[in-house]
Amino acid sequence: MTESDTDDNFRAFRVRPYLLTGGRTRAAVDLPLEALVRTTESGHASLANQSRERHQIVSLCASPQSVAEISAHLSIHLQVARVLVGDLVQEGLVATHVASTEKTTERPDLRLLEQVLDGLQSL
């Protein structure tokens, strides 16, 4: 293998994941890994007209899925999933629970932790 072959392969690897996003690597909205995404009514109505990955996301999220799950189920990089989901959020086709940046950097508060504790103890 020549030097330039390696270079080409390298470039192909770097670029391909973001073909789906038109080269964009940043999502329109802040989406933590665990942000739950759910298809809206307009999302359901739009299904027939969606491209493959968008269609997959919109149908998958009929029951809420995290961004990480979307990435895993579609076998796409996390950041690519984020960009696609961000677009769908902006278009109102899916909705997500965790919206504000400030909120998601905070640790869960005591009330939420108590609910988690209750939940774990009932497992």
Partner: peptide, 20 residues
């Protein structure tokens, strides 16, 4: 070319709460 694979699981703690 570094990518990181993370495995993760999901636990329903209640109707209102999901733990990843």
């Amino acid at each position: 070319s570094t990518t990181v694979a993370m495995d993760f699981g999901r636990v329903a703690l209640s109707q209102e709460l999901v733990l990843y």
